[in-house]
Design a protein around this nucleic acid. Structure first.
Lengths: 207, 207
DNA sequence: GCACCATCTTGTCGCTGTCAAGATCAAGTT
DNA sequence: AACTTGATCTTGACAGCGACAAGATGGTGC
């Protein structure tokens, strides 16, 4: 059926079409690039619109406000973090989960520093935190628990309370990550040394 | 000398005078209040100018830009933190420094959450970090070292390198603080329980 | 062939930081 | 006493931002 070629609109350059066609996803992808290269403050509706060749108000039709876009980016971040932890642990014996998972966690933060910082800046999307963000973040947290316990935690989400052990492991790795990303350690240590120090810290913590 | 009363200008209400007289300090104080009540994004030159009854451009004459004002607030925060640690440790035997100092650290963060978050958001004042900020923050760090060592650390600032022990204690307390302030723990624990958990964590960490 | 509706554009508003030019005023100089 | 200087503050303007409203566009279903 050679005549079917007009069923899907011929791929004109997106800049010429009145309707972009996939603006929502394009916004998310472009926002991810801007976030990592210039920081969260540089992620603006108007800036993204310019980059994508659409009008300044186009983004508003896909996100209620700027925070809703940022929340989407954060949710993607949590999903990526959970996946990274899962990958690092799958196929290895539980005894190595903490080591491998901890390393994967650190690597995620070092690879996507701006994303990591934004994921935890919950003030950015406090009012009406979207469902997907909650879901992906708790998935990541469950991977963290699995990692620190060395087994699947069977947890009742209603009655669950954080214990000192979970708090210690999570605080240590998150704290180290934040101190590094916020530049508090850069005077006295470089990235490779930070990675070594942090791994050592986690080993001692879990010994 | 009773006639000396006109040496200092009679204290007209500041709103009526052309020159405020102490605008720089007034800006810093008002900014501190706005910061803690409405968050760092609410700290704006124009908003502060309105609150203080001066023109919208007046703040620019005392701070090169908004980041310079925020840096001042952060420096004050580090100074207050260092003082709080010092107070908590002074007059008590070194064996109790970690417990008392750790508690003081946590209390500082819980009392001034927005201030604490901003102090570590170094991206806000990355370009040309003012001298005082560096000074006060390293004073706070030295108190932290003294606290964790149980003695005055004699350190050569040039050759100093962070060790796993310092990284562990600092990461744990900072990480717990950030997780709490960013709301990651609020679902499963309240503030009193957080305080108890964190203290317990620090005890175990230093045991 | 028509109507609907999601999508996108244009225009506007008030907010922000920042700069430039002028007004005010205290303190020091001649 | 008159003048000058410099710090402080005001007024006015500009560009960038988020957000809203009203209209243009064009594909989909009736």
């Amino acid at each position: 059926m050679p005549t079917k070629q007009s069923a899907k609109p011929p791929p004109k350059p997106a800049t010429e079409r009145y309707h972009h066609g996939d603006l929502r996803n394009a916004l998310i992808e472009e926002a991810g690039r801007v976030l990592e290269s210039d920081g969260v403050e540089a992620v603006t509706f108007r800036g993204l619109a310019r980059r994508l060749g659409v009008s300044h108000a186009a983004p508003s039709h896909h996100f209620a406000d700027r925070h809703e876009l940022l929340a989407e980016l954060a949710a993607d971040g949590y999903a990526a973090l959970a996946d990274a932890l899962e990958d690092a642990m799958s196929g290895t014996p539980p005894a190595e989960w903490r080591r491998n998972g901890g390393r994967a966690y650190l690597e995620f933060g070092l690879t996507s520093p701006q994303r990591y910082r934004m994921m935890f800046a919950s003030q950015l999307f406090l009012d009406e935190c979207p469902e997907r963000l909650l879901g992906e973040s708790s998935r990541a947290y469950l991977m963290l628990l699995k990692l620190s316990y060395g087994r699947d935690p069977d947890i009742d989400p209603e009655s669950y309370r954080v214990g000192t052990r979970e708090l210690a492991s999570w605080s240590a790795v998150h704290g180290a990550m934040m101190l590094w990303l916020d530049g508090q350690l850069r005077e006295s240590v470089d990235q490779a040394e930070f990675m070594r120090l942090s791994s050592e810290m986690l080993d001692e913590l879990f010994a």
